[in-house]
């Protein structure tokens, strides 16, 4: 199981990095989304994998084992925040495209002049 999760994280990262290095905004946004999946799963997995041990306490039975709740709490907010971040990037990309009719990531050559 660990092998499956690790390889999935690796492949998501590779795909994410590849897309982030593309030249247009939309693939870059997709790449960022893939990277956030990879990062979220990675952080989640740092609590180690356990099956059938959700961190929902059962006060009536002793000796139950639970998986690590802390990375889950971190990842839960991370998922929501990454939605917010994706939305902002989408908006910036869209605003940029609508004003210049161009969705290239790299600045045009003359942009360096008024920096």
């Amino acid at each position: 199981m660990e092998m499956l999760v690790a390889s999935a994280v690796g492949i998501l990262t590779a795909a994410g990095v590849y897309l982030v290095l593309r030249l247009r905004t939309f693939p870059v946004i997709l790449g960022l989304s893939l990277l956030s999946y990879a990062v979220n799963v990675f952080i989640f997995a740092s609590g180690r994998l356990m099956l059938n041990a959700p961190p929902i306490l059962d006060p009536y039975s002793e000796g139950m084992s639970y998986t690590d709740p802390l990375p889950q709490a971190l990842v839960l907010t991370a998922i929501v925040i990454s939605f917010g971040m994706t939305a902002v990037t989408v908006m910036i990309a869209l605003g940029g495209f609508l004003s210049d009719r161009d969705d290239r990531i790299d600045m045009p050559e003359e942009a360096g002049e008024d920096a």
């Binding site: 999760v5 690790a6 994280v9 690796g10 492949i11």
Partner: peptide, 8 residues
């Protein structure tokens, strides 16, 4: 990808 996967 290899790095992150290996680390995980």
């Amino acid at each position: 990808g290899l790095g992150v996967g290996g680390l995980a």
